[in-house]
Amino acid sequence: MQGVPRGFSLTHFFPLLLLLVLPARANDSLAGTWQLLAGNLPGEAAAALTTTTSADPRERALAEAVVLVARQPLTDARLLEAERRLNALAAESDEVGAAALYLAGRLHQLHFSTPDYAVAAGYFRRLAERQPASPWAQLGLVKLALLTLHVLPEPAGPAARIAAVEALLPRVTRPPLRRDLLIVLGRARLFHNLEPDRARANLLAADAIGGLTGLAAADVTLQIGELCFRAGDDARAREYLQRFMAENEADPRVFTVQQRLRAMATRKGTL
């Protein structure tokens, strides 16, 4: 019989012990998977799913569907499979079902090689009617507004489209999403050169909700200041332009804003 080699110690068995221990350390929650997906790491999320054991099956199925949508290479066949799974989940009216309906709409809005905006809008409408308070329904209403403004065949004409979106506004009750929709509405009015006063009111309402950061915040502040200047509301224009300068010292537009303030001073004889 061969003897134990000299220098034997337990460390020689560490790899084997590790193998025995690993399954026992598998996750029993999907938190790690969601974090990886939130970090745009779908490959790692798929791997994490394989070590997750006792998560809620509906939540797990949702995570699997999201991984299907997020991983490359993405094909229409894979998206169809994702939609089938999402529709199965959407049969129940819980938060997983709401998320599934929302994502199914997004597949048709953006992910398939040929978008079908009418189908996407159908998903968002169904979700908003079924679970209006769900965060997914609220977000779906914002996406429905975008489709209505720009791509759905009806209503026709810019004014009618804007009116249809205005009608959706009371249904969007979550403040950050309401703010985003107000900005979209205001900019659509500017884009179509319709009702600049109402565009200004939309942006002011969005600013009152707050919470914007970075370039989005700078742009909205500057837009309000400039639109107020154009409308002759110099007091408010000055307030917003000065706020822009205070919050964005290194922005290359500071010089232009300074010129605007000078123009106002000349116009009114005050600054």
Partner: peptide, 15 residues
């Protein structure tokens, strides 16, 4: 496009 999966994940995680 990639923001959909991230929003879905963060939204569900928060819920």
């Amino acid at each position: 496009l990639p923001q959909d999966a991230r929003i879905a994940a963060l939204g569900h995680w928060m819920a």
